[in-house]
Design a binder for these strands. Structure first.
Lengths: 319, 319
DNA sequence: CTGTTAGCGCGTTCAT
DNA sequence: ATGAACGCGCTAACAG
C-alpha cells in the first residue's frame, strides 16, 4: 500500500510536504506548483489511499455514522437503509451497523461503534427503553431516532399520529362508516397511533366496537377475526402487513373485502398496491423523513428537535 | 474516553502493563494477580473500549466486514442483513455498508471500506460486472458473493438453478400441465434461472408458449399479460413479487388464479403466504446460505469455493 | 517554500 | 514483575 512516506521517499521530499499536498492544503500554505504536480502524479501512479486508521487516530473527522436497527424484517428497513445510504454516499459518510432483536431480549452490542469512532447515531424504529444507552461511551455525539420512543435521547423523526388519525376518521366518516374494529399489536408505534385513532373516531361519531390486540402472526390475526362478535363496517389495522393478514383471514372465512367489511392499513408498503384488494392506507413521506434525519444527525451541533411528518391518505380498494 | 493511558495514570502503573492485561497477555508474560485485577476493575469502571484506529494502525485484526448491497429494496435484503448481523454479533464482527444502484448506473463507493480497514467482503445480490473491483485496494481479503455473477472474485453462494428448474418442472408435470408462459426480467438471476427452466420444461414435455421479458413494474407486467396470445396452463414468474403482479394484472382482467391459469413464483417472501391466492413458490434456505457465506468470508484463508443450495418447493394455492 | 518534530492509542521489543 | 521507548500513517506546530 502506498503511503505518504513511500511517496516522499521516492520523490526525495519530506513527508509533511506530501501530506500538505495530499490534504489539499498546498496552495493555502504555499507549495511550489511543480512540487505539487510531482506529488499528485506519484500518488496517482501508486494508487495512494489515505489510511483512515491513522486519520481517525489523529482526530480527523471520520464521517462515520452508526445505525441501530430494532427490526431488520420491517418491510421498510431496506428502504430506509437504502435512502440513508444514498444520502451518506452523496455526503461521503460511512454507515456502520448495529442492531438488536427485541423479541429475543438481546442486548445491543455497541462495541462496533466504539471500535470505529462514529460521529452520529441513527436509530431506526420505535422503542420503549434505551437501557443500552447507559453504557454508551459517546453520549455527546448527535443522534436521531426515526420512530417513537418513551426515552428520547436526541432528535426525533416521526409521523404525526394526531393528523394521521383525523385523516382516517374524516375519510371513514365521509364514507358513512358507523363503527370500527381495531387490530393492533403491542409495539409502541401501534399503541401510539391506536390511542389517537380511538379519540379521532369518537370525535367523528364512529363507534369502536372492538379493540383486538394480537402479535401479528397470521394465526393470531385469524383467531382475532374469528372471535369478532359482529362484523364492523371497517377494520383498522396497525400496519399494512397486519391489514393483509386480516384480509387473508377474512378471505379464508369467506368474508369479502370491501363488500362485507372494509380494511384500512398503514405504511403503504410496496406490496399494498398489488394486493387483492389493493390496500387503502396512509403513505408516510419516507424520503423527506430520512433526509431530515440525516440532516439532524450529521450537523455539527447535536439537536433535540422533534419533527413530525404528515402522511398522505392513499385511497384504493380495501376501504 | 478511557484509554490505556488514563487507566495507567490513575493506577500509577505503566501503559505497557495495562496493555498486557487488557490484551489478555498478562498471564502469559507474568503479571501480579493483584495488578491484573486492579487494571481490570478500573477498565470496567471507566468503560474502557480499545480504540480501533490505533489497533488497525498497528495491524491488529479489526474484525470488520464490508457489505455491498446491489439492491436495498430487495425484499430479502433486510432478512439477509439481519442474519448477517446476528452471526456477526455472535462472532464479534462489525458490519460496514456500501452499496450501489445498478439502475442509475452509479458507481460503487469503496472509500468506506478503505477508511475502516475491512477484513472481508460480502456482496449481496447478483451482478454482471465488477468494474469497481479494478480500483479495490484490498484485493487480497476474503470475499463472498451471495447471488449469481459472471465475474467471480472470491467464494460464491447461490441457489442451484438446475435443481430448482427440475423441481418446478416435475411438479407441473404431475399436475398435467401442458404449456407455460415465462415472465422474467433482465437481471442475471432471472436469466440464469430462465435458461434452466426452459430446458427442464422441455424435458418434462411442457411447451413454453411465450417468453415475456418485462422490467417488473406493474404496468409492464400488465401489458405483458394483455399481450399474451393465449392463456397458458401456467405462468412462471422470476420471483414472488413478479408473481403477485401477474396475479394482480390477471385479476384486473378478470382472469382467475389458479382456476383459469396457474402462477408459480420464486423466493417465498414473507408475503406469499398471505397473498390471495397464496403463492406456490420455491423457498431458498436463507439461513443456511448466510451462515455459509459468513463462514467463508470470515475464515483466515480466502476461498474460491462455490456452494449451491437447494430450495424447497412450497405448494400453496396459486399453482 | 520546505523540513523537523511531536503525538494521537496501542502492542511489542528491550531493558531493568 | 514492571517500565521506557519505538513505530504504525498521518497532520499540525514550529523552525528554518
Amino acid at each position: 500500500m502506498a503511503t505518504q512516506k513511500s511517496i516522499a521517499d521516492k520523490l526525495g521530499l519530506s513527508i509533511s510536504l506530501v501530506s500538505r499536498v495530499l490534504s489539499g492544503k498546498a496552495k493555502e500554505i504555499g507549495v511550489a506548483q511543480e512540487t505539487i504536480q510531482k506529488v499528485l502524479d506519484e500518488a496517482q501512479r501508486t494508487n495512494y489511499t489515505p489510511n483512515s486508521a491513522a486519520l481517525s487516530l489523529r482526530g480527523v473527522k471520520t464521517h462515520t455514522l452508526g445505525v441501530i436497527s430494532y427490526d431488520f424484517e420491517d418491510p421498510y428497513f431496506g428502504i430506509i437503509l437504502g435512502e440513508l445510504h444514498k444520502i451518506a454516499k452523496q455526503r461521503k459518510f460511512t454507515l456502520i451497523l448495529a442492531g438488536s432483536y427485541h423479541r429475543e431480549e438481546e442486548t445491543l452490542d455497541l462495541s462496533a461503534f466504539a471500535k470505529h469512532s462514529i460521529e452520529g447515531l441513527i436509530i431506526v424504529g420505535s422503542d420503549r427503553n434505551k437501557d443500552w444507552y447507559e453504557k454508551f461511551p459517546q453520549k455527546s455525539i448527535p443522534s436521531v431516532q426515526i420512530g417513537f420512543t418513551t426515552e428520547k435521547i436526541g432528535a426525533n423523526i416521526c409521523i404525526d399520529e394526531t393528523v394521521s388519525a383525523s385523516l382516517i376518521a374524516r375519510y371513514l366518516q365521509k364514507q358513512k362508516t358507523n363503527n370500527a374494529a381495531l387490530f393492533f399489536n403491542h409495539s409502541l408505534s401501534h399503541e401510539t397511533f391506536k390511542k389517537e385513532y380511538i379519540e379521532a373516531l369518537k370525535e367523528h361519531e364512529i363507534t369502536v366496537l372492538e379493540d383486538v390486540i394480537c402479535d401479528g402472526s397470521l394465526n393470531s390475526v385469524k383467531s382475532g377475526v374469528k372471535r369478532l362478535k359482529s362484523l364492523p363496517d371497517v377494520i383498522i389495522a396497525g400496519d399494512d402487513i397486519m391489514a393483509t393478514k386480516i384480509i387473508r383471514s377474512l378471505h379464508e372465512l369467506n368474508i369479502k373485502v370491501p363488500d362485507d367489511v372494509k380494511v384500512f392499513g398503514f405504511d403503504n408498503i410496496a406490496h399494498s398496491r398489488n394486493f387483492i384488494p389493493s390496500l387503502t392506507t396512509l403513505n408516510p413521506p419516507i424520503k423527506e423523513m430520512i433526509q431530515a434525519a440525516f440532516d439532524l444527525v450529521s450537523s455539527p451541533k447535536a439537536s433535540q428537535e422533534t419533527m413530525r411528518f404528515t402522511p398522505e391518505l392513499i385511497s384504493r380498494e380495501s376501504a
